[in-house]
Design a protein around this nucleic acid. Structure first.
Length: 231
DNA sequence: CCAGACGTTGTT
DNA sequence: GTCTGG
DNA sequence: CCAGACGTTGTT
DNA sequence: GTCTGG
């Protein structure tokens, strides 16, 4: 779940960041198809709120056939946040917000891909995902982020059984950054309400992560747009 | 997340 | 089948 | 000190 | 391999 996002509408993101009182926003070229290992601009709270580029996926070391192997983990499950030795320290002091315009999910049936869907906030043009970040142990100054996930709500479960944790108000977003105790944070870690997201079925153009542009979010019409004239 | 590879040597 | 790259 | 875990997704 | 918990 949540392994592909869209950050193509800088105006929408700017409004979202301004709702927190920020005066900076992304100046990157629009990206309709951001995949794990690529760069996300992430909101962190230090002395002030700031926007930091981070690589999508927190690295962890695991024993492999020939020594240790690095594995990148793009999502953090809600039920592991306080028990895993990877996530727990990040939950305590490394919480961040991931501003996006929307994310993609793929529906499967009998193991096979059926269709791709684009999810956008119903009430805004951008939204925050709950994230946790870590300083890279190998590369100085490199930051890595994972997106917190939870069981899908009823609406999402039509497509997929997991979804990212959404922070849909400025209050919730700031609470995620500021709260110190576990109880307050746990209150934020819940599936969004069923009417929080708008679903759009899109073509398989977005499947390939090197494909870019507005074609990624173009709706699939129920009727074919073009029909061959029968002969 | 999905797509695509999944080997090596020697040579230019 | 499983790993890596984007 | 030793024992045991160590992400996530998809899948059913 | 390396960290956490007992």
């Amino acid at each position: 779940m949540c392994g592909r996002v869209n950050v193509s509408d800088n105006d929408g993101v700017r409004l979202l960041l301004e709702s927190l009182g920020m005066k900076t926003w992304p100046t990157r070229d629009p990206r309709f198809n951001i995949a794990p290992t690529q760069t996300l601009d992430v909101v962190m709270l230090d002395a002030q709120l700031s926007l930091q580029p981070m690589s999508w996926g927190v690295s962890m070391l695991l024993p492999g056939k020939n020594g240790m192997v690095t594995r990148r983990v793009q999502n953090a499950r809600d039920d592991k946040l306080w028990s895993s030795r990877l996530w727990k320290p990040l939950m305590e002091s490394q919480r961040v917000l991931v501003p996006i315009n929307g994310f993609y999910e793929w529906k499967r049936q009998d193991k096979k891909l059926v269709s791709a869907y684009y999810m956008t906030p119903a009430q805004a043009s951008a939204m925050f995902l709950a994230g946790i970040y870590k300083r890279s142990t190998t590369e100085a100054d490199k930051l890595e982020v994972s997106v917190v996930t939870i069981s899908a709500n009823d609406a999402m479960s039509m497509v997929h059984d997991r979804m990212p944790v959404l922070l849909l108000s400025a209050n919730e977003a700031m609470a995620w950054l500021q709260e110190g105790d576990r109880q307050s944070l746990d209150a934020l870690i819940k599936p969004a309400s069923n009417d929080a997201l708008t679903f759009t079925e899109v073509s398989n153009y977005v499947n390939k992560s090197t494909n870019e542009g507005a074609e990624c979010i173009q709706p699939v019409s129920s009727e074919p747009e073009f029909q061959l004239t029968p002969k």
